[in-house]
Design a protein around this nucleic acid. Structure first.
Lengths: 400, 400
DNA sequence: GTCTTATGTTCGAGACGAGAACATAATCCT
DNA sequence: AGGATTATGTTCTCGTCTCGAACATAAGAC
C-alpha cells in the first residue's frame, strides 16, 4: 500500500466489502457516507465495480425527500462462492453471492470416508456455472496448514486434502467451529465485537478466538481446540491422546456417556437431543447429565475468559439448547472460575443468531475472504483505457 | 485511509516505524528498498521527517562500492519515551529514543502503596526535559480498561490510576507479562512470529498472546491471565478467588510452597532463586520443587498450545532458569498434553532474549506505539508551505 | 406551482508516487 | 594514476488519486 493506484484498489475493496458485509442493500449515497468519501468518488468507484461485473446499480425505492439514489446489488454476472458443510454422515452445498444471499443447492449422505470430497466436487461441478470464484468447506476437525485433516470420530487421521480437493477452483477447507464463529462475527451476534469467543458444541466442543471480526488461525491453522484443554479435571482419557480434556464433559458424547450410552464415532446426535428433551420433561437422570454438561461448560468458559478477556461469548450447536435450558447454571459456573475482580463485569454468554447453518455461512465468508482482496480485485478489474479514450464507450459489462 | 494525504502519512509512519524497529540503524537507500519505494520518494519522506525533528540524517560509513548514503538516526531534538517498571518494592525509570536505545535514568525502593506512582512521576519530571512524548509503565498485575489496577500480592485491589498517574504526559500503564512479551515480539526471540505466546514467570505466571507482533489486550485490557486457568488440577485456592489456578504450581510462590516456606505477598524472590541454586547443586528436596514447577509449566504450555497453536513460546523471568535447568522435563510435559497429531510439530519453547529488563523494554515499545501513529504524526508535522514557496528555505529544524 | 432537500455530475486543483535521465561519490581494476 | 563500475542522490515529467465547489436533477413538502 504505497502508491495512488494501491489507494484506489484499497478503496474499491473497502466499498465492495462494505456492500458484502451489510445486512440490507446499501445505496450509493449511503456507502459514500459510510466510507467517508465524496459522492463523486463513490460514483467513480461504483462505476468501476459495475464495469468489472462486481456490483449492479439499480434505482433505489424512494425513501423521502431528495433526488433518488441507486441500490448496490450483486451483479447478475458477478462472482459467487460455493460453500459446503461436511458432517459425520451428510453434506450440504450452498451458493452465496456478494451481499451474503445464500441458496441451498444440494445435499447428500456419505459413507464416512474421504471419498465424500469427490461427491462434493461432483455436486459443485454440476452447479458451478461460470461465475464460481471460490469454494469454502467446513469440516468437523482441525485442518493442519490448511491441508491435512484430522477428524478423530471418523478415524480420519492426517487426510491429505491435496489428494481430495483438486484445483478446479480456489478452495479453502477449515474447521466448522471456527467457521461458525466467523459467521457470528460477520453476520450474527458477534458483529462489532473486538474480542470474542465462539464455541460450537456438537459431539464435543470446538471454538475460535475472534479479534476484530477475524477468526484466529494460529501458526499451523489449528488454533481453537479449546475442547482439548484440561479445564475441568476429568479423569478420562480423550481420543486425542490427552487426559482430562474439557470435551470429555461437554457435548453430545459427554451427555451420552453420563447416562451410560455408548459415545463416540460420530454417532448419537439424535440420542443426545433426546436426553435434552427428557431433561426438559423432568427426567432426573437426564437432568443430571445436562447439569453436568452445563456446569462443565460454564467452568471452562470462566477459565478461558480469565485468559482471553472476551467481551462476549457465543455458542452454537448444542450450546444453544444448553443455554436455553441451563443459562443460570452456566453463568454461575462461569463466575465461579472467573477471577474475583472480573465478576462485576462478566462476559455475556449468548446464543448465536446465525442458526444451524452457521458453519456453512462461515465457509461462505471464508470463500469471499479470498475474493475481497486487493490482489484478486486487481486481477479482476478490466484494463483501464490508456488515457484520453472515451470513458463511457460501452454500457455493456464485459468480463476479461 | 482514503486520500492521498492519508497515503503520505501512512508512508511516513511506515518509514519511521521501520527505523524504530530495526536493530541496526537503517540507511536511506536501505529503507527505500525495504519499503519498496523509490529513492526519490524516500528522500522526500526522510526530508519531511527530518524537518519534523523525528529523524536525523548523517553520512553513513562507507560500506562498499557506490555513492555513500546516509544513516537514519534519532533526531537530537526528537521525541523520547520514558518507561517505568514497577515491582513489588522497587521501581526503575529509563529513557528510550527512536530506534530503541535505552538509558536507565533512576531507580528506587517503595513502600508497597500506590504512593509509588507519585515518586515515579517526580522522577519523571526531573528527567523529562522538553522532548518527552509518552510514558509507559509496567506493573505486575492486570489494568482493567487501562485504568484500574489489581495487584493481589500487594493488596492493591482496584486502584484507580486516574488518581495516581496525572495527565502531564500521555501515559499508559500495562501488565508486565504482556509488556515482556511485547518486547520479545519487537526486539527479541519472537520477532517475525505470526502467532506466539509469551509467559513471564515471577511470583506467579502471567502471559500474553502475540499476533503479528502485537500483544493482545482483550475487551477490557485484562487478557493474558493464563496463570488463572485451572490447567494442572491443583486442589489449592488461589488469592484470585478461584480454585486450582495454574499459578499455584508455577513460579516463585509455588517453589517456596513446595519446600514448606511461606509464599505470597510479593516476598521471597531471593529465596526462590536459592531453591533453584540448591537444586542445581544437587539438593533433592529443592530438586523436586523445581521438577514440580517445570512439569506443571510444561503441562500448561501443552494445553495452551492446543487452544492457541503458537509457532513459538518464549519465557522470561524465572522461566529462563527453569528452561536452563529442566528443558527436557518441560518439553516432555508439554508434549504429554499436546493432542497426538500436534506432537510431530510441537511449538518451540525458548528463553526470551531481551533479558531482565523486558517489562521495561515493553513499556518503552508501548509508549512508542502511542507515538508512531498517523494521528500523532499528522499533529507533529510542520505545516507545509502553501505551494510555490521555496522548499529549502531553512536548514534549521524547528518544532512547532 | 414553488420551495426544500438530497443526490448526481462536472470540472479544476492539489498532492502523491513512479519512472527516466542525469549527476555524484565511492570502490575496483589495470 | 586513471578509467570502469556500481550504488545512490537529484531533478523533472507524468499519470493517478481524491477533494471541493459549483451546478444540475429529481423527488417530497408546503
Amino acid at each position: 500500500m504505497t502508491t495512488s493506484a494501491d489507494l484506489r484498489i484499497h478503496n474499491l475493496v473497502r466499498l465492495l466489502r462494505a456492500v458484502h458485509d451489510a445486512d440490507e442493500p446499501l445505496t450509493r449515497a449511503g456507502v459514500a457516507r459510510l466510507l467517508g468519501i465524496g459522492r463523486n468518488t463513490a460514483a467513480a468507484l461504483v462505476g468501476e465495480l459495475e464495469a468489472a461485473a462486481l456490483l449492479h446499480e439499480v434505482p433505489a425505492g424512494a425513501t423521502g425527500r431528495g433526488r433518488p439514489t441507486t441500490s448496490l446489488l450483486p451483479h447478475p454476472d458477478g462472482p459467487v462462492a460455493i460453500a459446503a458443510d461436511l458432517r459425520e454422515d451428510t453434506w450440504t452445498l450452498a451458493r452465496i453471492e456478494v451481499g451474503g444471499r445464500l441458496t441451498e443447492l444440494a445435499s447428500g449422505e456419505h459413507d464416512r470416508t474421504p471419498a465424500v470430497f469427490a461427491e462434493i466436487r461432483a455436486a459443485t461441478r454440476r452447479h458451478a456455472g461460470d461465475r464460481l470464484a471460490a469454494l469454502g468447506v467446513a469440516v468437523a476437525g482441525p485442518v493442519r496448514h490448511g491441508r491435512r485433516l484430522h477428524i478423530s470420530h471418523l478415524d480420519w487421521d492426517d487426510v491429505d486434502l491435496a489428494e481430495h480437493v483438486g484445483d478446479e477452483w480456489p478452495t479453502t477447507v477449515d474447521n466448522d467451529a471456527r467457521l461458525a464463529g466467523l459467521a457470528e462475527a460477520r453476520r450474527g451476534a458477534l458483529r462489532g465485537a473486538g474480542t470474542a469467543l465462539h464455541f460450537h458444541i456438537d459431539f464435543d466442543i470446538g471454538g475460535t478466538l475472534l479479534l476484530g471480526g477475524d477468526a484466529q488461525r494460529g501458526a499451523g491453522n489449528i488454533a481453537g481446540e479449546f475442547g482439548h484443554m484440561p479445564l475441568t479435571g476429568s479423569p478420562l482419557w480423550c481420543r486425542c491422546g490427552v487426559q482430562g480434556c474439557w470435551s470429555l464433559q461437554v457435548g453430545t458424547n459427554a451427555l451420552l456417556r453420563h447416562v451410560g450410552q455408548e459415545a463416540g464415532h460420530g454417532r448419537g446426535r439424535e440420542a443426545g437431543r433426546e436426553i435434552l428433551a427428557r431433561a426438559e420433561a423432568g427426567d432426573a437422570r437426564a437432568g443430571r447429565a445436562v447439569d453436568d454438561n452445563a456446569a462443565a461448560l460454564g467452568h471452562g468458559l470462566g477459565a478461558l475468559a480469565n485468559a482471553l478477556d472476551p467481551e462476549v461469548i457465543t455458542l452454537s450447536g448444542l450450546g444453544v439448547e444448553l443455554l436455553r435450558l441451563r443459562r443460570d447454571l452456566i453463568e454461575r459456573s462461569c463466575a465461579e472460575k472467573l477471577m474475583r475482580f472480573r465478576r462485576a463485569e462478566p462476559p455475556s454468554i449468548l446464543a448465536g443468531t446465525v442458526g444451524e447453518a452457521s458453519p456453512l455461512r462461515g465457509a461462505a465468508e471464508l470463500a469471499f475472504d479470498t475474493i475481497l482482496t486487493p490482489a484478486w480485485l486487481q486481477a479482476r478489474l478490466p484494463a483501464r483505457p490508456p488515457a484520453g479514450a472515451s470513458a463511457r464507450a460501452s454500457m455493456t459489462a464485459r468480463r476479461p
